[in-house]
């Protein structure tokens, strides 16, 4: 167990408090993407088929995305300093979603600090 202090970015009074975080720090504990991929499906909705187009009634393709997110400790991944991530802290659990992956899926289904969340980009 490793304990880190909040460096003041998100204050101790915040709803999403960073106090202590426990992690084992190994890719070996990463979970498998057990429900992905699945087959795409379609939904009929009033929407734009492409950017700039007028909205109209169309069938849109719906693509399954990962529902069991694998993660690794920071020292186990190679990201450039200026690479973009989307980060969140829930009940002391801290995770960053590299935009390189969110751009692949647009949305993923994860659970952090016991809270089911949908990071989108």
């Amino acid at each position: 167990m490793r304990t880190t202090k909040n460096h003041g970015l998100w204050s101790a009074g915040a709803a999403l408090v960073l106090a202590t975080t426990t992690f084992q720090g190994s890719l070996a504990e990463s979970r498998q993407l057990d429900q992905w991929p699945r087959r795409s499906r379609t939904v009929r909705v009033n929407a734009q088929p492409r950017p700039g187009a007028a909205a109209r009634e169309i069938d849109i393709k719906v693509h399954p995305v990962p529902t069991d997110i694998a993660s690794a400790a920071a020292h186990e991944v190679r990201l450039a300093d200026n690479e973009l991530v989307l980060g969140v802290v829930v009940k002391g659990d801290v995770i960053a979603y590299p935009i390189r992956y969110l751009a692949m899926y647009e949305v993923v289904d994860d659970t952090v600090g016991g809270l089911p969340i949908a990071p989108t980009w």
């Binding site: 490793r2 880190t4 460096h7 970015l9 960073l18 975080t21 992690f23 890719l27 990463s30 993407l33 990962p66 997110i69 694998a70 993660s71 690794a72 400790a73 920071a74 186990e76 991944v77 990201l79 991530v85 980060g87 802290v89 659990d93 801290v94 995770i95 960053a96 979603y97 590299p98 992956y101 692949m104 993923v108 994860d110």
Partner: peptide
């Protein structure tokens, strides 16, 4: 700010 962060991997 969060050196203990985990990171999504695929």
């Amino acid at each position: 700010f969060y050196p203990e962060t985990r990171v999504m991997v695929v």
